[in-house]
Write a protein that binds this DNA or RNA. Sequence first.
DNA 1: GGTGGAAATGATAGCGCTACCATCGCAAGC
DNA 2: GCTTGCGATGGTAGCGCTATCATTTCCACC
Lengths: 334, 334
Amino acid sequence: MSRPRIEDVAARAGTSPITVSRVLREPAKVAPATRARVTAAIAALGYIPNLSASSLASRRSGIVGLLVPTIDNSIFAATVQGLTDAVATAGLQLLLGDFRYSDEGERALVRALVGRQPDALVVVGVVRDRALREMLLGLDIPVIETWDLTTRPVDTVVGFSNREAGAAMARHFMARGRHRLAFVGGRDQRAQARAAGFAAALERAGAPSPVTEIVDGAAIAEGRRAVARILTIAPKTEGVFFSTDMLAVGGLIECQHCNIAVPYQLAIAGLGDQEIGRELTPALTTVRVPAYEIGKNAGEIVLSRLRGDPIGKRVLNLGFSIVERESTQARSAK
Amino acid sequence: MSRPRIEDVAARAGTSPITVSRVLREPAKVAPATRARVTAAIAALGYIPNLSASSLASRRSGIVGLLVPTIDNSIFAATVQGLTDAVATAGLQLLLGDFRYSDEGERALVRALVGRQPDALVVVGVVRDRALREMLLGLDIPVIETWDLTTRPVDTVVGFSNREAGAAMARHFMARGRHRLAFVGGRDQRAQARAAGFAAALERAGAPSPVTEIVDGAAIAEGRRAVARILTIAPKTEGVFFSTDMLAVGGLIECQHCNIAVPYQLAIAGLGDQEIGRELTPALTTVRVPAYEIGKNAGEIVLSRLRGDPIGKRVLNLGFSIVERESTQARSAK
DNA sequence: GGTGGAAATGATAGCGCTACCATCGCAAGC
DNA sequence: GCTTGCGATGGTAGCGCTATCATTTCCACC
């Protein structure tokens, strides 16, 4: 016995297929008595609409495509959650794809997602590939970039300035009497923007330019290794800003192992406000970023666009804040 | 200008739609010269096939539905990765849904996924709801349950025995001279199975039954609170087994705050072999579970089924192993 | 009683693709 | 020369749903 179709439901309810379709999509337009019969028939048959057929006929798929660099990074999970919360209210579903920080993977993934006819696309990050930008523009669906601001988004961008976050952390260190600083982060755009802002703020204040360590991934072990290298190359370093909290945790642990007092000898800060940073001793100073809100806002923008609302702001800056904890306290506080 | 269709590509390549379709799906069946013309036309037009139409016509969607309890738990990320790695080789795509540990959410999610006509379904966990089991059986597609073994899977299950893992950890503690034990875990099936195995092994050895603390979520703070409660209720407790490494990290941190020596005064163990546990001092004893392999195997089973291979083993036990580190060393080792 | 119009329902014609079978051309074999 | 068989290609007819435009019913109102 194959799966029931809308026609089977209609036959059982003594009505036509189109009425069943209406019960599913706009129940208010069907008389209560008919609606009840149809609903009963649906339940009795265990009917589940074929959404491929539906999206082919209606040209609306009910899918929001989401491109993330990686899913094993819990900070993006908050963004996914926010996006889900926002779009689920409208019955939209997320189609998630991770491109593992690879440009080629991103192109392939976009093709795969677009083939499913998403009603909108949300990207964690900014689309830099020129051809890809063109293609997304040509799709004629909302495309929301997130997690970093750009002055010329494909369509709309919601996030915060990673560059400004880096600069703010540099000023945070300097205000606490630390000027010989270092930066640790990955190769991705966001890390690079944080590094650039960090360096620029230092230069502007006349401080020495920071030692910069590029790492692969965001593992604790990478953070440890980076600190070890920094202390070899520049033993007088007074503070390190890590592009993520996990890297910073590695930094804290390495200092503990080498008997380097944090924050007195070396100050450490991360980004992301992950739980582990709050619980360690010393507690980790960090940049709190609006990960959940980014997803929520992106979802709300998607919904408003699908409703046909006029296009509002193209750049939505949700800001960030520095959460000061023990790991960057001023020496005088000793 | 709207999106090009297969017909447009055919016209440009001077062939028929069906040939274009073949180039996309079984290129070997098309003459090289024709194939080249079609490929060029596809590239020139930026044609992306409409997979809704494709799946409607072919009755194969190229989608594998994946149900996870939550995505913000990095240990499932490894399973997702393994599954992706396995099915991507066959051009299949994952449609991910998280039901946030809610039964109602699970039912709704299954309906949403099934509507997209997945070629197979992978579930993290075991489907317990009777009606849901029936429905999945009726779908006539492979359904792979994972992460816990059951003697009567809907179809096929791949994982390890959580109950046995709990029992093994109980024996691990007892072999190191600890018999007054406690268990900390959530309400989910897997945690409950670990708790049951843990308690059963203790009972069998004639040890006192364990103090059990139920927590919500897997946060570090929950682990801290649980240890604090356990030490109030049963101050003589000699060891605690946490259902996840994150909870165990909370346990370690709480002990550090309260000046309880680990492992001398209290031994601590977790499950999951997360990086953080390796890096802390004392390093965390844990149960290493084959998270990635579970996904990989599930994917391979899906592929073999879709190829039409006969159904093999219905229960695939991938086992686990205990990784002993400092946090559960015997007292004599002091 | 006739008219207008809203509410409820239905008939028809695709959406863009692929399964199925038919057709065509050509080399091999007798 | 004619058949056989195979590789390459195409025509036709849906897949299961919904957009669009009827059609029907029935009540309000003059």
